[in-house]
Amino acid sequence: MLNSFVIANPNRCLGCYTCVVACSAAHRKSGLQAAPRLHITYSPRGTMPVQCRHCEDAPCAVVCPVNAIEIRDGMVLVKEQACIGCKMCALVCPFGAITMNGTFPPSIPKPAGQVQSLLAWLAGQKTVAIKCDLCCSSTDGPQCVKVCPTKALQLIAGDQVERLIKLKRISSVAVVDSILNEEGE
């Protein structure tokens, strides 16, 4: 079966960040890096969160020198503990879905008072590759999909892809048919 992935419909996306924060909160809760794994991307052509497509032949997994990225259970996953932060995966990803980030592991509290400062530097963090893991550690699926207020985000399961492709084939028959008929008239 093909890998599953989450994708956004830019016609519905409000750029409201609910998915981003839900992502961060879910991963923080399961003890992973709290950095969000999807990125609201504004462009004159539209706005939507961009995240991992869970490629079948994932270039990130191919380039990783320490095998920290594996394809398992229909997903492409980074083992954050194994990652050495070499950034190769982030560079080869054709979607910009991988970021390097070093938020604090939840076990180390943020120093008090450093809510924000212009030139803050935070000690004690480990920088690793951060990407979508379809919230595999939570029981009710990707949290971004769950909270999106306009239902712009959708989880496309592997078997669904094949069904969708079939539907496309059927509609393409109709298109050809209409073209031929027009010519015949």
């Binding site: 409201c16 960040y17 609910t18 981003v20 924060v21 839900a22 909160a25 909270v147 999106c148 207020p149 306009t150």
Partner: peptide
């Protein structure tokens, strides 16, 4: 809101 919220409502 019909069962939805935005980022401020949730978090």
């Amino acid at each position: 809101n019909e069962g939805e919220l935005c980022v401020k409502g949730y978090y």
